[in-house]
Design a protein around this nucleic acid. Structure first.
Length: 131
DNA sequence: AACGTGACCCTAG
DNA sequence: ACTAGGGCCACGT
């Protein structure tokens, strides 16, 4: 016999925080103003995961795949996120290998040799700018 | 369910 | 100065 009501109230304990890393990353990246760039580490650090930089990239990958953030109203400007050296390491994950650079240049960001020029000056740190 | 991978970063020798 | 290793977060097999 099967038990009539079989909905196991598993729910062991509510999670401490339901903050989805994914969504959180998307939100922060969306706050990056045009003409500015940020880094995976900076965002991760701002979210409290200093060493969770990889997850940031993964989240952006999902955004590009139109997986979670399929909002055309507020697309995630993943092209504004580079690594700590200012290199466009994620350009290969864009529709075209040059899409990232072109988008940045369209915003006035100069890119040379797959690296953002004056990247340090254009760096946008939410912890400082967003307070 | 465990292991491995990935758009990374930091610390140690 | 350079090289090596570990660590965190989420996902795929």
């Amino acid at each position: 016999m099967k038990k009539t009501a079989g909905p196991p109230p598993a729910a062991p304990v509510s999670p401490p925080a339901e903050r989805n890393f994914f969504q959180d990353v998307h939100e922060v990246v969306r706050l990056i103003p045009p003409g500015r760039v940020s880094t995976y580490g900076t965002i991760a650090h701002y979210l409290g995961a200093r060493q969770g930089s990889r997850a940031v990239g993964y989240a952006l990958n999902a955004s590009n795949l139109d997986a979670i953030t399929h909002r055309r109203d507020a697309p995630v400007p993943a092209h504004r996120v580079v690594n700590r050296l200012g290199q466009l390491t994620g350009r290969h994950h864009f529709p075209t290998p040059t899409a990232m650079q072109e988008r940045l240049e369209a915003e006035g960001v100069r890119v040379e040799d797959d690296t953002v020029v004056d990247f340090k000056k254009l760096l946008w740190d939410p912890a400082s700018e967003l307070e």
